[in-house]
């Protein structure tokens, strides 16, 4: 999907007008397998870039999810509570985790674009 930016811990962000929507990559959901639970932060929580912002649990294990960019949580995806498998079906679409109001509008230029991330995960295999 065009316009997504990635970090090496496999989260993505889509930045639009000072707000970043974020989730985990399609590669990450494939590595996790069936997602059964997501723990999302309270509205208003402030995170640094690379700071833990959520937890995603598959049948096998719990994994920490990190913020690609610094900001304040302004919305979480309520659909994930009843249907965490949305993350498996649409990791970069309806399976988004939360929205961050950017601490520093203009941040994000250092993140990997789609092509750079594809190359990065190729190197991980």
């Amino acid at each position: 999907m065009a316009g997504l930016k990635y970090i090496k811990s496999h989260e993505w962000a889509r930045i639009d007008g000072g707000v970043a929507t974020m989730g985990i990559s399609d590669y990450a959901q494939g590595q996790l397998g069936d997602v059964v639970y997501v723990e999302l932060p309270p509205i208003g929580k402030k995170v640094e870039a690379g700071g833990q912002v959520a937890v995603v649990e598959s049948v096998k294990a719990a994994s920490e999810v990190y913020a690609p960019i610094a900001g304040e949580v302004i919305e979480v995806n309520a659909k994930l509570a009843d249907d965490p498998a949305l993350i498996n079906r649409a990791a970069t679409g309806d399976g988004w985790f939360l929205k961050l109001k950017l601490a520093n509008p203009g941040d994000g230029s250092a993140l990997m674009d789609e092509a750079a991330y594809a190359k990065f995960i190729e190197g991980q295999k």
């Binding site: 397998g33 069936d34 049948v59 096998k60 498996n88």
Partner: peptide, 12 residues
């Protein structure tokens, strides 16, 4: 194998 293409829940 930890799972095949159907995934753990479907296999279970």
């Amino acid at each position: 194998p930890v799972h095949y293409s159907d995934g753990i829940i479907a296999e279970h």
